[in-house]
Simulated assay, not measured.
Amino acid sequence: MNPAIVRPFESDDLPGAATALIKVHETDGYPVEGVEDPETWISSDDVLRAWVAEMDGEIVGHVAVMRPQGEAAVSLWIEQSGDDEGHVAVLGRLFVVQAARKHATGRRLTEAAMSYGREHDLRLVLDVMAKDAAAMRLYERLGWRKIGETTHHFGNDESIPAVCYVAPGA
């Protein structure tokens, strides 16, 4: 398998990204929402910019930078930094199929989003489910800093512990 190519998301990528999302959900239980309608979840109106990873002609990963929508990580960062919401965005919708994980695909997708944040004067924040230790290790290796904890609510009154992070500054 060749290393993945990370490139900007195009509308033609939507079916392949949805298929990859379903594969990731089947292996990892992530995401906890959006799987019933993956194309709508991936192409949310809150997406500012997105990227895909493609390997051997197949979409194997995705990440998006999104407008804040009341996420705990956004509130925590604004409270701690004094930043205003206009300079904060959320890294979200990051997923990589299992077969592509040993090729630094998640790192490269995250770095694409981080570059966009720096270029547009946006401080990126995120929350990650506490059970997703590999994701937390990735963010920490890239310099993200833990800023607090929250509970991620989804579905029919379901919830799961989550950890909030902020990307390194410019």
Rank of each mutant, 00 (worst) to 15 (best):
V90S: 02
M1F: 10
G82N: 07
T110K: 04
A170C: 06
Y30T: 07
E158V: 04
G169H: 15
T27F: 05
A162Y: 08
P8Q: 03
A99D: 12
D28V: 09
T110H: 04
R137A: 14
V47L: 01
S81K: 04
W41S: 05
E26D: 15
D12C: 10
S43H: 12
T151K: 08
I42S: 03
M66D: 06
A130H: 09
G61K: 04
D13G: 00
V88Y: 08
V74W: 02
G117W: 11
H120V: 01
H103F: 15
H120R: 05
S81N: 03
A104T: 11
V60D: 02
A167I: 04
L124T: 01
F9Q: 07
M55Y: 07
R141P: 01
D121G: 01
A170Y: 12
V63I: 14
G92H: 04
A17L: 05
R145C: 08
R101N: 05
A162G: 07
L126F: 08
L91M: 15
M114L: 12
A99I: 10
P3W: 10
V52P: 03
V96F: 03
M129T: 13
V128A: 13
D84L: 02
M1A: 14
R137L: 11
T151V: 15
Q98G: 11
S115M: 11
L124S: 00
G70T: 05
E119H: 11
Y30I: 14
A104K: 13
E33D: 14
L76I: 09
N156A: 13
W41Y: 15
S75G: 14
A4D: 00
P31Q: 03
D127S: 13
A167S: 15
G92A: 13
V125G: 02
N2D: 14
V65Y: 03
Q69K: 11
I160G: 08
I59P: 00
I5A: 00
G148R: 06
T105L: 04
Q80H: 09
G155W: 14
M1P: 09
M1N: 08
H152T: 07
E79G: 10
A113N: 00
T150F: 08
H120S: 02
L109G: 10
L138C: 01
A104L: 11
K102Y: 12
E71V: 01
M129H: 15
G143N: 07
P38Q: 04
V96N: 04
S159G: 05
L21N: 01
E149N: 08
M129C: 11
L122S: 01
A113R: 00
R7I: 07
P31K: 02
A64M: 00
E140G: 05
T40R: 13
I160L: 13
C164K: 06
A50I: 05
D132Q: 14
Q98E: 15
A104D: 15
R137H: 11
D28T: 14
A104S: 15
G148D: 10
G82L: 03
N2K: 11
T151Y: 10
I78N: 02
H62E: 07
G70Q: 02
G106Y: 10
V35P: 01
L21K: 02
H103S: 15
V163L: 09
L122F: 12
L122K: 15
L91T: 09
E140D: 07
S43I: 05
C164L: 07
E158D: 14
F95L: 11
K23C: 09
D13I: 02
E71W: 03
E158C: 12
T105A: 05
V74F: 05
G29C: 07
